[in-house]
C-alpha cells in the first residue's frame, strides 16, 4: 500500500567484539514462549502453558524475561517472531507486539516459519523430514526440510493439505523422511507405521531466536514494514470467493 524507504537497520556485525542479543516471541501455538539469547547462548526462555489470557500475557512475559536477564529492551539488537503458520490470532499478537517494539526502537526484525523451527529442533545433520503443524478442520500445514551444514533448508512447501496427501510426499522423497512436529504426527498416516515420528510438543522460542541470529549474520534481517505473516490458509471469504474448496493452499500473504 505504501512505498517507503527502509530505515537503516544496522546490525552489529560479527567480530566487532559485541555479542548480538536477540529477543524472540513464539505465539503461533497454544503455548506462549519468549526467549532471550546472546550470540548462540540462551540467556532466558519462558514458556507459558495454554491458557485463557495467554496472549494478553505477552508483554508481561517479555518484561519478566528481560528482568531475569537484568537487561532493558534497548539492549536488544534484533527482534524475532514466529511468523506462522499456526493460530491466526497468535501469529498476529506476536507480530503486532514485535513490530511495535522494533519500530519504536528502530531495530531489525526477523520472522521465522514455525515449521522451520520444528525442523531445526528435530532434524539431524544430513537428514530430511516433513514438519507438520495441526491446521484444524482436518488439515495440516506441512513442509519438507533438510539439515545441511548446520542449516535447515526448505525443500518443499509450506502447504495446507489433508494428512492423506503426506503419502505422496513420502513416496516421492529420495531417502527416508521423518515426520516431525505437533503431537498430531502420532495420529496420522496409521498405515505407515515404519515412518519415524518425532513429536515436538512444546514450541521453542530459543530456536526462533537462534535461527533469527543466523539470518541477521547473513544480512537477511527485515524491518517492521516488510515483515509479513505466513498464514498459508486464506480467509474463509477468499476461499468461498475463489470457489476452490478449502483444501487448496492459498497464496502466502
Amino acid at each position: 500500500m505504501f512505498e517507503l524507504s527502509a530505515r537503516p537497520t544496522a546490525v552489529k556485525s560479527p567480530g566487532n567484539g559485541t555479542a548480538l542479543i536477540v529477543l524472540a516471541v513464539h505465539s503461533s501455538t497454544p503455548y506462549l514462549a519468549v526467549a532471550l539469547t546472546e550470540d548462540r547462548r540462551i540467556l532466558v526462555e519462558k514458556v507459558l502453558s495454554p491458557g485463557r489470557r495467554h496472549l494478553e500475557n505477552l508483554a508481561p512475559t517479555i518484561a519478566e524475561v528481560m528482568d531475569r536477564a537484568c537487561m532493558s529492551l534497548d539492549c536488544v539488537d534484533c527482534f524475532a517472531v514466529a511468523k506462522g503458520p499456526g493460530s491466526f490470532s497468535g501469529i498476529r499478537v506476536g507480530m503486532a507486539v514485535v513490530k511495535g517494539m522494533a519500530f519504536a526502537l528502530c531495530k531489525p526484525v526477523v520472522g521465522i516459519s514455525s515449521l522451520e523451527m520444528i525442523a531445526w529442533q528435530s532434524l539431524e545433520e544430513g537428514r530430511q523430514g516433513i514438519c507438520v503443524i495441526d491446521a484444524k478442520r482436518g488439515d495440516i500445514y506441512a513442509a519438507i526440510y533438510r539439515k545441511e551444514g548446520g542449516r535447515v533448508l526448505l525443500a518443499e512447501g509450506p502447504m495446507l493439505i489433508p494428512p492423506g496427501s503426506l503419502n505422496r510426499l513420502i513416496d516421492h522423497a529420495c531417502g527416508d523422511l521423518k515426520l516431525c512436529g505437533d503431537p498430531i504426527v502420532n495420529d496420522i498416516l496409521e498405515r505407515r507405521p515404519h515412518v519415524l515420528r518425532i513429536p515436538v510438543p512444546i514450541p521453542s522460542a530459543a530456536a526462533c531466536a537462534l535461527l533469527a541470529l543466523e539470518r541477521c549474520l547473513r544480512g537477511e534481517a527485515e524491518n517492521p514494514h516488510t515483515l509479513v505473516p505466513l498464514y498459508i490458509r486464506r480467509s474463509d471469504a477468499e476461499e468461498k470467493k475463489a470457489g476452490e474448496g478449502r483444501r487448496k493452499a492459498g497464496p502466502r500473504r
Partner: peptide, 18 residues
C-alpha cells in the same frame, strides 16, 4: 475483535519498548 487486537498489541509493544 481481531482488528482491535492488532492495533492494541502494536501500541502496547510500542509503549513498552519506550
Amino acid at each position: 475483535p481481531g482488528a482491535l487486537l492488532v492495533g492494541l498489541k502494536f501500541a502496547q509493544g510500542f509503549a513498552y519498548a519506550l
